[in-house]
């Protein structure tokens, strides 16, 4: 039997790695992928708690998170295509129109 807090610690580690990737990467597509990594880490915690309390609400929440992630990926990748079309670059530092 695997103790639940192993799953939750793994979830925390994956979330932290997602945050590090979000800060460290310069490519806008990779930054978007690190958001997906953070969502996956949260899903892992949801499923672990759902199994330990024998309530299925957590797994239903995971389904909703996956649906929202799919919608977010579709819209976000559309925005990325627009940015690369207008800026001719995928580096986030070139997207600074609002900067003084």
């Amino acid at each position: 039997m695997v103790p639940t807090h192993y799953y939750v610690i793994l979830s925390a580690v994956l979330f932290g790695l997602g945050v590090i990737a979000f800060i460290f990467k310069r490519n806008i597509i990779t930054i978007f992928m690190s958001i997906e990594l953070m969502l996956n880490a949260v899903n892992l915690a949801f499923v672990a708690f759902s199994q330990v309390w024998h309530r299925l609400d957590g797994q239903v929440f995971v389904l909703f998170v996956i649906v929202v992630a799919a919608a977010e990926a579709a819209v976000g990748l559309g925005i990325i295509i627009m940015i690369s079309r207008n800026r001719k670059s995928l580096n986030v530092e070139n997207v600074d129109l609002l900067k003084l």
């Binding site: 695997v2 103790p3 639940t4 939750v8 330990v52 309390w53």
Partner: peptide, 29 residues
């Protein structure tokens, strides 16, 4: 960013490891 990210991860993991019994129950495989 990397030290701050590592600090965040450590904080989360430490909070989980020190949490109550409910978290420490085993998941029935």
């Amino acid at each position: 960013g990397i030290p701050l990210g590592v600090a965040l991860t450590g904080l989360l993991a430490a909070a989980v490891a020190r949490s109550q019994d409910a978290v420490h129950a085993s998941v029935q495989s």
